[in-house]
């Protein structure tokens, strides 16, 4: 066990379903009951003004919207992973999430690349979403 642990999400009342979903291998987004738009868990109210949003399981499929290959870690806990890929993934349902791309060489990552969600359980009832190439 490394002395330095990577940051683990601390679920709040509002975000708990999202992290619990990840722990169960499900990607959940907030869907607006008024206009059907899907949102990342960082939004609590829809752009239509609707505040009646329900957690909905989505496909976990999407594309890389942008990415960076990190060569300087923010924290010793990430040093072993260098160089690692951080990406903004645009999900097929429309919302975007910050995540990592794993399961391929950083050189293989490109904007527009199809990816699918995978999950890592990091604490009791808390998972983290990551993505890997859709064809792997």
């Amino acid at each position: 066990m490394s002395e330095f642990r990577k940051p683990v999400p601390a679920p709040t009342d509002a975000s708990r379903p999202f992290w619990a979903g990840c722990a169960e291998g499900k990607l959940l987004l907030r869907r607006c009951r008024q206009c059907d738009k899907h949102h990342a868990p960082t939004r609590h109210v829809c752009s239509c003004g609707g505040s009646d949003l329900e957690w909905t399981e989505v496909s976990g499929l999407g594309r890389v919207f942008s990415y960076t290959v990190v060569h300087r870690a923010p924290d010793p806990a990430f040093k072993a992973d260098l160089p690692y890929v951080i990406a903004i993934v645009e999900l097929d349902e429309g919302a975007r999430l910050m995540s990592n791309i794993t399961g391929c060489s950083p050189d293989a990552v490109a904007i527009g690349m199809p990816v699918r969600a995978i999950f890592e359980t990091v604490a009791e009832g808390v998972g983290v979403h990551k993505f890997q190439p859709a064809n792997s």
């Binding site: 940051p7 990415y67 910050m98």
Partner: peptide, 23 residues
């Protein structure tokens, strides 16, 4: 502060600007 939707992925401030630069 911590940010559950960024920190678990090892995002840095230069990393944020890098995401903009790549785009």
């Amino acid at each position: 502060w911590s940010d559950d939707f960024e920190d678990p992925f090892g995002l840095t401030v230069p990393g944020k600007y890098a995401l903009l630069a790549q785009r």
